[in-house]
Simulated scan of single mutants.
Amino acid sequence: MWNHARGWGYTDLPNPCEGIQGHSLAKRTVYITDAVFSAVRMYGSAPLRDAMDLAYLTGQRPADALRMTEQDIIDGHLIITQEKTKQPLRITITGELAKLVERIRARKATHKIVTGALLTNIHGKRLTAPALRTHFDAAKKRASKHVPELAQDIMAFWFYDLRAKAADDTSDDRGDQAASDLLGHDSVKTTQRHYLRRGKIVAPTK
């Protein structure tokens, strides 16, 4: 910003940040195991279970999952344009994702309120980010109480970690390129650098 101000003629003083060493954050390495995922999901509300499943199965960011609507389902695909990168994706609605969409529609049908959003709260209205956080935190606390042996891992669970779990699990099943495609990355190296947290499966020397 200071450099912009110099260019606009607001100041001719040198940038006070010059020479200050930058600080880089360490890469997050937490992998959410199936046991931790299941524990939180078990003690979560119906809206949270839908949100967890949708975020995991599509590999999308929480904000993108919250924006998904019925209108995004076209010709058997879930059409996504990622807010952060504007990357377009078409995720085939098959397998567990198809079952999830039917479950979501069945739950929405029990409410008089009509909304196009796929993720809704307990009243049938669009699920918001603050409400998702409240549901998620409450589920983690209940899960920690009932599954104490996993309490530490449960409390370390961030909702955003589901994107990395989707990447890791897809990579194990179908390879790094498939994981990169699901996350909407232009380069598989981005997926490998930031989202694959478990390492490659390799054989021993002998």
Score class of each variant (00 low, 15 high):
1 M>A: 11
153 D>L: 02
69 T>P: 06
15 N>I: 06
14 P>C: 11
87 Q>P: 11
29 T>S: 13
132 L>P: 00
186 D>A: 13
168 D>I: 01
131 A>S: 07
10 Y>R: 12
95 G>E: 01
28 R>H: 00
165 K>E: 09
104 I>C: 03
169 D>G: 06
39 A>G: 02
91 I>K: 04
145 K>W: 01
6 R>V: 08
109 A>F: 15
190 T>K: 13
68 M>Q: 10
149 E>V: 14
121 N>C: 04
122 I>A: 08
163 R>H: 06
104 I>L: 05
60 Q>H: 08
107 R>A: 05
132 L>F: 00
83 E>M: 13
27 K>A: 11
56 Y>W: 01
37 F>H: 06
167 A>H: 00
126 R>I: 15
120 T>A: 15
140 K>A: 07
206 K>I: 12
141 K>C: 02
105 R>F: 07
165 K>M: 14
116 G>C: 15
66 L>H: 00
21 Q>R: 12
175 G>P: 12
149 E>Q: 08
175 G>S: 15
33 T>N: 04
115 T>F: 08
205 T>R: 14
85 T>W: 05
128 T>D: 00
142 R>W: 02
191 T>W: 01
87 Q>C: 15
93 I>D: 07
175 G>L: 13
112 K>C: 05
92 T>V: 11
163 R>S: 01
6 R>L: 04
2 W>F: 03
52 M>Q: 09
67 R>V: 04
31 Y>T: 04
18 E>H: 06
143 A>F: 03
120 T>M: 11
24 S>N: 14
6 R>W: 03
196 L>C: 02
142 R>D: 02
201 I>E: 15
195 Y>C: 00
45 S>C: 09
16 P>Y: 06
120 T>L: 11
88 P>S: 11
96 E>Q: 09
46 A>E: 03
61 R>K: 10
61 R>Y: 08
34 D>F: 04
79 I>S: 10
163 R>K: 08
34 D>I: 04
15 N>R: 07
97 L>F: 12
203 A>L: 14
160 Y>K: 04
165 K>W: 03
122 I>T: 08
18 E>L: 10
192 Q>I: 14
76 G>Q: 07
56 Y>E: 01
147 V>M: 04
206 K>M: 09
32 I>D: 01
147 V>D: 09
87 Q>A: 15
74 I>Q: 14
